[in-house]
């Protein structure tokens, strides 16, 4: 009987311990580190000898809340001159965490790639080449040529960032590769910019 008492005492202690150790933690604020809130397309004109001339101008797509229901992103119209050639650089930013994601994309160039699609390419208003350092197909830096004659002044360009794709997939080296899905991976960005041609 003495033993039984001891056992029940231990039992009770164990129980008390079990119940006490199990309180849920106070919730903590979580930094949204994966979110992309701002995508900036930066343009500068290139002359006939491919030297940068003129001033830099930018167009931006932003979604300050990241992924949240009920909010739609704001997308500026890209305005470019017919018959000219530009260098386009893309900057990707997380405004919630004040983090430059461009750097990360560059560091993981082997797992990322931008594709450029939409009416501007389908109607041959634009032509584009990757111009990243080291001759890789990434798309953070590109050369964009605007056709001198376009039937319309209004068009659109779709910018897609793929992550984790097979970059050596047949056709994937083409910045206009519309079957990018076939190369695997997933979409990090998919933005359609309105385009105004002057």
């Amino acid at each position: 009987m003495k033993n039984l008492k001891k056992v029940s005492l231990y039992l009770f202690a164990l129980l008390a311990f079990g119940f006490a150790s199990c309180e849920s933690e106070d919730p903590e604020k979580e930094n949204e580190e994966e979110v992309i809130t701002d995508v900036t397309l930066q343009f500068q004109e290139l002359n006939a000898s491919n030297a940068l001339v003129g001033s830099v101008f930018t167009f931006k797509a932003s979604d300050p809340q990241g992924i949240e229901v009920g909010k739609t992103p704001t997308i500026q119209s890209i305005s470019l001159a017919k018959g000219k050639k530009y260098q386009m650089t893309i900057e990707v930013y997380n405004a919630i965490e004040k983090e430059d994601i461009t750097k990360e994309i560059l560091e993981e160039a082997a797992a990322h790639q931008f594709f450029f699609l939409g009416q501007v390419f389908e109607s041959n208003f634009f032509s584009i080449q990757y111009a990243d350092a080291g001759g890789i197909a990434l798309g953070l830096k590109t050369t964009l040529t605007v056709s001198p004659s376009t039937g319309t002044n209004n068009s659109s360009m779709r910018v897609v960032l793929r992550h984790d794709l097979n970059k050596s997939f047949t056709g994937a080296s083409n910045p206009n590769f519309s079957n990018f899905v076939q190369a695997g991976g997933e979409t990090d960005l998919d933005i359609t910019f309105p385009v105004i041609l002057n």
Partner: peptide, 8 residues
């Protein structure tokens, strides 16, 4: 729902 990532 539309975001910079696309539609859901």
């Amino acid at each position: 729902f539309v975001s910079l990532r696309g539609t859901f």
